[in-house]
């Protein structure tokens, strides 16, 4: 066995902290495991040769997403169903909890609170969901994806689609509740854009950073950006609205947000840009995944 000098991987400070590692090295060296015998290797080869023969048999395995079936909705749904089963119960419960909270807030406190909640929380939920879904533990499955008949890029987008569809459906349900409850204080298409833009923008950012670097950064960066945007918006509200101690500043802020959604073209433009940037980052994340798979 090659004996590795473990200290060479350490920094000066780490070496100083660990001190003499000779006892550890001695322990590791003494931990020997048996090599396979030649007959064990022959037996393994005998088991593998039929697998090789089967692999090189003429009929190729048809991918459920091969070009001839690329537009089969059944194939896509089948893969999506498999992804849904992979996601843990906690992921779904968190989304349902936020949806229920939204409904509760909407009916208990009024439409402006529900709209505020949708606009503020939907992007966070999406970014958090994406970062969670693409955390390193799940990326460890990549070699299984390699041998899967479904390509890694398809899996990435299907998985992303499942997360966004789930989070989107929660916000859609809340907006439906707005409409059904007669709480039509906002133009729906404008609300959809203001909600969807940041949601796709932050989800794209979370995905790209998680895939390119690390899921912790993929969680923190979008959250910090969004928190910064909220703080900036809050400062604007406090500076611009006429507020007296007799009125609730939060209620004034919510009313201001609704007025902006209904009237501000700048806000719509910003949401549209966030939407485009988010889609671009998702495409870049796909390219990164393909590069990593072949690296």
């Amino acid at each position: 066995m090659n004996e590795i000098d473990l200290e060479r991987d350490l920094t000066e400070a780490q070496r100083a902290e660990l001190g003499d590692l000779s006892a550890v090295t001695k322990l590791l060296v003494s931990y020997e495991v048996a090599d396979p015998t030649p007959s064990e290797t022959d037996l393994l080869l005998a088991k593998l040769k039929p697998v090789l023969a089967e692999r090189t048999a003429p009929e190729p395995i048809e991918s459920p997403l091969s070009p001839s079936r690329a537009f089969s909705s059944q194939a896509w749904l089948g893969v999506a169903r498999a992804q849904i089963e992979i996601l843990p119960l906690g992921f779904w419960l968190a989304g349902v909890a936020v949806g229920t909270l939204g409904l509760f807030v909407g009916f208990a406190a009024g439409a402006e609170w529900l709209i505020t909640l949708i606009v503020l929380l939907a992007p966070l939920l999406a970014a958090g969901g994406v970062a969670y879904t693409f955390r390193p533990e799940t990326r460890g499955l990549e070699e299984l994806e390699r041998i899967s008949v479904v390509g890694p890029l398809e899996l990435l987008y299907i998985r992303l689609g499942v997360v966004l569809a789930f989070n989107g459906s929660i916000s859609a349900a809340l907006m439906l509740a707005l409409g059904l409850g007669g709480m039509d204080v906002v133009q729906l298409w404008r609300l959809v854009l203001v909600w969807l833009g940041p949601m796709i923008g932050l989800a794209g950012l979370a995905l790209y950073i998680s895939v390119r670097w690390h899921t912790i950064a993929g969680t923190i960066v979008p959250l910090v950006l969004w928190a910064g945007a909220i703080l900036f918006g809050w400062r604007e509200i406090v500076a611009r609205v006429e507020w007296t101690p007799a009125t609730s500043l939060y209620r004034v802020a919510a009313a201001w947000l609704i007025a902006q959604i209904n009237n501000s073209d700048g806000l719509l433009l910003a949401a549209s840009i966030a939407l485009i940037v988010g889609l671009f980052l998702m495409q870049q994340a796909g390219q990164t995944v393909m590069r990593n798979r072949t690296a």
Binding site: R55, L141, R146
Partner: peptide, 29 residues
């Protein structure tokens, strides 16, 4: 080990640039 080699054999995607690292990745996972 047998399962690892089986996976390596039946894999139909892009061949890895570094076989050694890939083989350990499959085995480890």
């Amino acid at each position: 080990v047998q399962e690892t080699f089986t996976r390596l054999i039946i894999y139909r995607g892009e061949p890895p640039h570094n076989f050694r690292t890939w083989a350990y990745t499959v085995a480890r996972n």
